[in-house]
Amino acid sequence: MSNRIPVTKSGLSLTKSIAVCALAAGLLAACGVSGKEAPVGHPVTAAPSTDNTLTQVVTDVYQRFFDGNTTADQKIAALENGQAFADTIRAQADSPIAKGSKATVSSVTSADATHANVVYTISLNGTAALPDQSGTAVKADGTWKVSQASFCALLSLEMQGKPPAPCSAS
C-alpha cells in the first residue's frame, strides 16, 4: 500500500478536498439572506439575448447557491431537482465550514439553449479551496440552476464516493 496522499485533478489532497467539499455542501444549507438580495434563480423565459446575459445569470445562481449566507430553501430552489436533495442540504445547514464559503465563477459558456458549462472556484474564508472546478448549469422551468450533476460531483468527494441516493438517478 502506498504512503502517498491521493491528489485530485485540482492538485488538492483527497483529505483536503473532502473537507472543502464538506464546506461546499454544507454551505448549501447555511443561514439566511437579507431582504435586499434578489431571489435565488433568475427566471429567464426566453434564451438569453447575449453571452453576457447568460454569464451574469449563471454566475449569480452559482454565487448564491454556494454562498454560506443563503438559506437552505433558497439553495434547494437554485438546484436542479433540488427537492430530492432537501434532506442533505438541510442536514448541513449548521456546518461552521459552510458559513465561510463562497464561489467565484471564472467562465460560463453556452452548450445549448438549456445547458451551460461553468468554471468556478469554491473559497473558504477567502482562501481558494477548490479552484477551477468544472460544472454545469441547466435551465429548468424557465430558470437557470446549478446542475444536479455538479452538486453530486462535490457530494461524491465529500462522502468518499458514496453520495446520497438522488445522485444515482442523475
Rank of each mutant, 00 (worst) to 15 (best):
A72T: 13
Q83A: 14
L130M: 12
T136W: 01
E158I: 00
N117A: 13
G26A: 06
T55P: 00
S168I: 00
D94S: 12
G126H: 02
S134M: 06
A24C: 03
D60S: 13
A72R: 01
V7F: 08
A149L: 05
T71K: 07
S10A: 14
V40H: 01
A103Q: 04
L54V: 09
A46L: 07
D132Q: 14
N52S: 14
G135S: 05
S170L: 10
Q63W: 00
V57Q: 11
Y120T: 02
G68D: 04
V44Q: 14
P166Q: 05
L23K: 06
T121S: 15
E158H: 07
T70C: 04
N117H: 12
P96H: 10
S156I: 01
K9L: 11
S134Q: 14
P96V: 10
I76H: 00
L14T: 05
A103M: 02
A72I: 07
M1D: 07
K145D: 02
K75P: 04
A72C: 11
D60P: 00
T109H: 05
H42I: 12
C152N: 09
K75L: 00
G135N: 04
K16I: 12
L28P: 01
A169Y: 02
T70P: 08
T136M: 04
S10G: 01
T88Y: 05
M1V: 09
D73G: 03
A47R: 14
T50A: 04
L154S: 07
G126P: 03
I5N: 13
A24V: 04
S156A: 15
E80K: 09
T121R: 08
Q148R: 14
P39G: 11
K162T: 13
V20H: 08
A78N: 10
A137R: 08
K75W: 00
L14F: 12
K139R: 15
A46D: 10
P43G: 09
R4A: 15
H115G: 01
G126V: 11
C21V: 01
L12A: 15
L14K: 13
S156P: 03
G161W: 06
K9H: 07
S95Q: 12
E80D: 15
T143L: 06
S123E: 12
C31I: 08
S123Y: 01
N69E: 09
P163G: 09
A84P: 04
R90L: 05
K36W: 06
S95E: 10
D67C: 11
V20S: 15
K102I: 09
N81K: 12
V7A: 08
V105R: 06
L54C: 07
P166V: 07
G100A: 13
P6A: 11
L124G: 11
T104D: 09
V20G: 14
R4S: 14
I76T: 09
T15W: 06
V61E: 10
D112I: 01
H42W: 00
V138G: 03
S156W: 03
V108M: 05
S147F: 05
T70F: 01
N117P: 00
S134Y: 05
P39F: 02
G126A: 08
D87F: 10
C21A: 15
G135A: 11
T8Y: 02
G161L: 03
A137K: 06
S106Q: 12
